[in-house]
Design a protein around this nucleic acid. Structure first.
Lengths: 199, 199
DNA sequence: AATGCCAGCAAGCAGTCACTTGCATGCATG
DNA sequence: CATGCATGCAAGTGACTGCTTGCTGGCATT
């Protein structure tokens, strides 16, 4: 009466598929490797998912881009703390999934369908953009910048750091935490918000 | 007496190899595909380069990361114009090579040797860092930020835009030129340099 | 004319790939 | 006990992979 073993197999296969794909890409993610990592017979993959392409599509869709929705306060009070918190969490997510993200980026021209339509990145950008707009409306930030450009700019900083810190350590001196604080500090200054100076 | 035809073949093969690699990655860059794109018999690849791995290594090393050295003035005069120019050229390079860069990033964990030691990115960061330091020493920028962190921050903005604009157009509204101007404007503000306001 | 080099062509080799088939096994439900 | 289902195992399919071999022809130098 417990369907767990079945689901357990499916889940194990999906998890293994994402891991192997992250490391080796689509072509390198052979069904043999996935089956071995999932400790399952190779035939089982095909019985469950039909084909390698279907398996990887479902695996990346389900596990790769789970949306950990991080919201910013509707009524901004402490821009520095609020942005530090949000950016820290966002960066943690990027860092945790950096292998998968890098692999997807490298293959996006060949497999554009793997990038989900309502990408979490775009959703996060929308959240951040709205927050910056609220800062402006409440006079907590200058009015002469475009939140729709500033948001992806800040996210680009986090993205580049999360993708590059491990493969080009010379480029990113110090700790990630310290860098993050500097990023937020400089960003706050650039939009004329409080918290841009050493607190 | 003209060795051009030989060199011509080698060059054509190398160029084709980079193109095919950029599009399909290491595993997808089959010797058949490269030979076809170079309009050369497949055997010729092996006679010239020995193996697929050697060919791709040489191709990416020689053609992929040519250093277009862009220097910033020793004596800063107009931070806004100088940074706009430098960032514009840097971004153009990134955009032009974005396919190759994305593919390399996706495979860097599997093939770390393809990333050259003195990567142009790191050299560019050093150039920018020194420029920011000069701004500080001349009193053209605030003294309370770390150029070694601000430089990769600015470059990260450019990098993320160059990599993401074509695959996530929703995230980057407006033109690239307009975005670049905003980035530089906001960056100048963040370091307290002149030119951070509408000129 | 003779030599040497570079290229193309056809064929093939062994290995890996995704995927299929047939059969045996265990296990839960009726 | 009988039925159905999920799984493992062994074997094999045709396509593609990197790479090799043997041969031919063109072209420049001697």
């Amino acid at each position: 009466m417990d369907p767990r073993p079945l689901t357990d197999h499916r889940a194990r296969i999906l998890r293994a598929a994402v891991e192997v794909y992250s490391e080796f890409g689509f072509r390198g993610a052979t069904t043999r490797r996935i089956a071995q990592k999932a400790e399952v017979n190779e035939v089982t993959l095909f019985r469950h998912f039909g084909s390698k392409a279907s398996l990887l599509r479902e695996a990346i869709e389900c596990q790769g881009f789970e949306i950990h929705f991080q919201h910013l306060p509707d009524i901004p009070a402490h821009p520095r703390e609020e942005l530090l918190d949000w950016c820290g969490r966002h960066m943690e997510e990027l860092r945790a999934r950096r292998s998968l993200i890098r692999t997807c980026m490298g293959e996006i021209e060949e497999h554009p369908e793997i990038l989900p339509a309502g990408s979490p990145t775009i959703q996060a950008a929308a959240v951040l953009t709205e927050y910056l707009r609220r800062l402006q409306h409440r006079g907590l930030a200058r009015a002469d910048f475009d939140p729709a450009l500033a948001a992806p700019m800040l996210m680009g900083i986090l993205f580049a750091d999360a993708m590059g810190r491990d493969i080009m350590p010379d480029l990113y001196p110090g700790t990630a935490a310290n860098a993050l604080e500097q990023y937020v500090t400089l960003f706050l200054r650039s939009i004329g918000a409080a918290g841009g100076d050493a607190p």
